[in-house]
Amino acid sequence: MSEGERELWLRVSGSEDELRSLRDWLRHEDGLRGRVRAFQSPLAPGEMGGALDALAVAVGSGGMGAVLANCLSTWIGQRRSDMRITVSTRDGRTVEVDAKGVDPQALARDIERLLNSDETEGNPQ
């Protein structure tokens, strides 16, 4: 992650396959290519591989939050209606998105709000 970028964490309710699908979807978006990392649970004894837990997406200025929001909105729109996505920052601030009637503009505003509040933390006004 380069200077000036923030990392948002994405988690999906439901199966691990849904998170893998989202990872593949985001990796094919030109504006997010090379900015998506997958995180897996540590291996338990007897396991062959860890479960996929979350995706980390490095976003910066220049409307990348809107790019991410549009990608998420499109992907969610093609999923089952009872799914939820949680977008969070390192300090635990979150936005939850329900697949039922997701509003791309509202999601973009929520993501930008997460990114902007992260930038201003610790900076006295």
Rank of each mutant, 00 (worst) to 15 (best):
L55D: 02
L55N: 06
L43Q: 13
D53Y: 04
R6A: 06
E5C: 04
S41I: 13
R37F: 06
L22H: 10
D24P: 07
G14K: 01
V12M: 03
A58P: 01
L22E: 06
A38N: 15
G31S: 14
R33T: 01
V12E: 14
S61C: 13
L10N: 11
L43Y: 09
F39R: 07
L32Q: 14
G46D: 12
R11W: 08
P42M: 05
G50M: 07
E47Y: 02
L52M: 12
G46H: 08
P45Y: 15
S13Q: 03
L55E: 14
R23Y: 08
V57T: 07
D24T: 04
E7K: 06
E29N: 12
V59N: 15
S15M: 03
D53V: 07
D30P: 06
W25T: 01
P42I: 00
E47Q: 12
D24R: 03
E18W: 04
P45M: 15
G4K: 02
R6W: 01
P42Q: 05
E5Q: 08
R20K: 08
E7L: 07
W9L: 03
S13R: 08
D53W: 10
S61W: 10
E47V: 00
W9R: 09
L55K: 06
V12Q: 06
P45S: 13
S41T: 13
A51T: 09
G14A: 05
G60D: 06
A51H: 10
G49V: 07
